[in-house]
Design a binder for these strands. Structure first.
Lengths: 226, 226
DNA sequence: CGAGATTTTGAAACCATTCAAGCGAGGTGG
DNA sequence: CCACCTCGCTTGAATGGTTTCAAAATCTCG
């Protein structure tokens, strides 16, 4: 029953199944599959160790994915905003958990649906592969950050990243707590706070309210991340 | 021209293209594609920034993959031994470089070959996806290690990992230098050396020669990695 | 306005780094 | 064969940045 469809797309998608150096995949997954769910602030979207049945995509709001390590510490893997995917796993269970930072809506697609879709449509398979590679790239950036950067460099880089993703020229709102930032950067909450205060004292940023950041000297911040 | 072959495998591979929770893929890639190349100790297999045209698989020996960071430091992403794949990239260029640790032989497969193969054979596409996810998992383990582990925990964990991969009950030979270990664990060479000495002084390991390690108290080492 | 949570600030302790020197094995040339 | 050199590794002492522990300040929400 699938054969017809497969024949139809076969020749053009031959190279797309493993598009290691394909141009950025346009669009993303089809929007008409899966269901949209709403989550309240702090609500768990999926838990560490749960069966990984679905793939997720942020529709609005922010989501954090994290792991609880053996020593009880929480390692935040990433913050995801509208349009970004999360919950991709290699194994049968989620290695990390996901929670809504504030109120958030999330598109949830069953893996079985994706499997079928990917089998029929080369562009979907390509997108899925692309997403996995994107995750790998981010992960490696994270390693580079953790390996030898000082607290100051980490915080500065984080602020620039947030500003860019929030598409803000100068001022923007942080959707996460200091503890979240600390667990993402692998610092303590005190060090994050101290570093932000220092950056403000140096005139690089301004902090009107604790979750509101204004970039005063973007260039200096960028130099810092070198 | 490919249509016939695709029709042939379509129904059974429908779920294999995106096998997020498929059982471990058996075997790996076909062995009859690509060519086998030999590299001398320290020889570059591919460089950072080069076009990522191929996928690689260690046939014998050890390979290290690494990145040079903006500050000039070297971050070793991993050590790869026989049977393991490396060189998978999301983009058009290699984000990391690869070198032979000692003399090594490596199977090199062109991406174009893989693309064609993956388009025809669902199990190949599945294996490629599986490899990407495996890399992601390793990457996240690396992050967990870097985030809050002490030098002692890192070195102990590294030794256990090496012992396991070398399939050694107790004693084994380290294929890499102290500098390599340091760049992998994000420590300095001095700290690695000191930590190894300390572990020996505590009776957990023995170091007959600098590259030869004997695990004396595996349990204590494992406790340390908690 | 009051209570709890979040954030900031301070001081002391700790761990890895840095800078510097010593050790030891392997290789070369006299 | 031994002196010598080099390179990788080890060890020591001092420095410095982050953490830890503690407390004050600020914000948020009922």
């Amino acid at each position: 029953m699938y054969a017809q469809q497969i024949v139809a797309v076969a020749p053009t998608t031959a190279a797309a199944v493993f598009p290691l150096h394909a141009p950025a995949v346009e669009g993303g997954l089809p929007m008409d599959v899966g269901q949209v769910m709403h989550f309240a602030r702090g609500a768990e979207i999926f838990g560490q160790g749960e069966k990984a049945d679905c793939l997720y995509r942020v529709v609005s709001g922010w989501v954090r994915t994290y792991r609880i390590l053996r020593d009880g510490r929480r390692q935040i893997e990433g913050f995801h905003l509208a349009g970004e995917y999360f919950g991709i796993e290699g194994g049968a269970t989620h290695r990390s958990a996901a929670e809504a930072l504030g109120a958030a809506t999330v598109q949830v697609v069953r893996r079985s649906t994706l499997n079928e879709l990917a089998a029929r449509r080369g562009d979907v398979a390509a997108t899925l592969f692309h997403l996995a590679m994107l995750g790998l790239q981010r992960s490696r950036e994270h390693i580079a950050m953790l390996s030898h950067k000082t607290a100051c460099e980490r915080v500065a880089g984080f602020l620039l990243d947030m500003a860019e993703r929030a598409d803000a020229a100068k001022g923007f709102e942080l959707p996460m707590s200091r503890q979240d930032i600390a667990d993402y950067l692998s610092l303590t909450i005190e060090t994050v706070s101290r570093t932000l205060s220092q950056l403000q004292a140096d005139g690089l940023i301004d902090i009107p309210r604790s979750r509101n950041i204004v970039l005063r000297d973007r260039e200096a911040l960028e130099d810092m991340c070198e």
